[in-house]
Computed example of a mutant assay.
Amino acid sequence: MNAVRDEPVGTGSTTETGYERPRDPVEIWLARQWQRILGFGVGIRENFFGLGGNSLDAARVIDAILVEFGVQLPLNVVTEHPTVEGLAAVLRDGDERPSGPLIAIQDGDGTRTPLFLVHPDDGQVGRYCRLANALGEEFAVFGLQAEGLYHDAEPLRTVPSMADAYVSVLRAIHPTGPYLLGGCEIGAAIAYEMAVRLDDVRLVAAIDAELLEPSDTGAESWLREPPPQSQLPEILADWQERGLVPRNAAPEIVARSLRVWQANRDAARDWRPSPYTEPMDVFGRTQNTALPATVVQRAHDCGTEDRLTAALRELIG
């Protein structure tokens, strides 16, 4: 088994060691390839060769890109762009593929039941990357990303419709249980409804979003009054400056993010939970999502992300 670096896990987008988590599906995919090749999780601005990669490892990255994206890149592209962020920019400029809801965050070693984490209100799953890394490379972790973020499809607008769609995707790769589900913000509600629709569910986790990283999109103001189109370039520039989106992110990401965020907030507000009698594990503070009084909630006192990781690992390990 490959070694995992012993790194402290922080609460922001950057840890004390300089780790910065992926922000979109291209960066998540590349970070996963680097973990597979190098043997440990890496941040998007860490140098491939500085971490121990060599020319043979770089060739393996190029081969994986050809298989996944159908793009033949020269070998020296890794030398010229030796970070996940830089290489992702090359791929994004050339051919960013619209991504479906299921995003593989960490491959795992095949010995553990996969953990499926549903997107929070912003629809993105990058917030779960550091948690996956902290759990250890033996754990397979998948994210379920909202529809409509990276293409012009309409976002799903109810919690049950999201649960139906994600259960269908999940069953396509994992037809039978056991299932481990979780999420923060609206993701907790969707995971709950997915559990209603599945057999042999071993975990339904409601995770305090602040344990993963502080919310820092400024999108709460959109709930009161959506910004006019003229402000979207300014919002994109602000997000890029704060490292919330890649430097070459398409301008459309702002409008799409706004639409997805609003759809998710409306869906959470209108959700009427289905009956469910199994316990739900709550990590951190009480969730914003209103759960039925009939649900048994097992509270886990997790004041830090390290304690969240330890509690999750104990439950699913």
Results as ranks from 00 to 15, higher is better:
202 R>S: 15
162 M>G: 00
103 I>D: 00
30 L>H: 05
263 A>Y: 07
242 R>E: 11
206 A>K: 03
49 F>S: 07
205 A>E: 11
310 A>L: 12
41 G>D: 13
191 A>K: 01
78 V>W: 08
275 P>A: 15
301 D>S: 12
91 L>F: 09
134 A>T: 11
162 M>V: 13
285 R>H: 07
7 E>I: 04
224 R>D: 15
270 D>L: 15
267 A>K: 06
187 G>D: 08
31 A>V: 02
261 W>V: 04
151 H>Q: 13
118 V>S: 08
87 L>I: 01
42 V>C: 14
275 P>K: 08
246 P>G: 10
79 T>M: 12
279 P>Q: 07
178 P>K: 11
245 V>Q: 09
236 L>N: 12
275 P>C: 04
63 D>V: 10
46 E>I: 04
129 C>L: 00
305 E>G: 05
117 L>P: 03
167 V>N: 03
123 G>M: 01
226 P>Q: 12
178 P>L: 08
199 D>S: 15
213 E>Q: 13
186 I>N: 04
11 T>I: 12
188 A>Y: 08
183 G>S: 06
47 N>A: 01
180 L>V: 06
119 H>S: 13
25 P>F: 09
79 T>Y: 15
75 L>M: 12
211 L>E: 06
210 E>K: 08
26 V>K: 07
59 A>K: 01
261 W>D: 03
193 E>G: 02
282 V>C: 11
168 S>W: 00
80 E>I: 00
153 A>T: 07
286 T>S: 10
304 T>K: 06
193 E>P: 03
261 W>S: 02
151 H>A: 14
86 G>T: 01
187 G>W: 07
22 P>V: 10
311 A>Q: 07
205 A>T: 11
272 R>H: 13
274 S>C: 00
261 W>N: 10
113 T>E: 10
109 D>V: 03
250 A>L: 09
132 A>K: 07
100 G>Q: 05
20 E>F: 02
180 L>W: 15
158 T>F: 05
291 L>R: 04
111 T>Q: 13
300 H>F: 14
173 I>A: 11
259 R>E: 13
170 L>S: 03
302 C>Q: 06
48 F>V: 08
176 T>R: 13
111 T>E: 12
189 A>F: 03
236 L>M: 12
138 E>Q: 14
274 S>F: 00
310 A>T: 14
111 T>C: 02
307 R>M: 10
197 R>E: 05
281 D>F: 08
74 P>T: 13
273 P>D: 10
11 T>W: 03
94 G>H: 03
292 P>R: 12
201 V>H: 08
254 V>E: 04
273 P>S: 10
281 D>Q: 09
3 A>F: 06
314 E>H: 11
124 Q>M: 11
218 G>L: 09
198 L>D: 03
244 L>Y: 02
28 I>T: 14
102 L>Q: 09
116 F>L: 12
5 R>N: 00
305 E>R: 15
159 V>Q: 07
292 P>G: 09
19 Y>T: 06
317 G>A: 10
129 C>R: 12
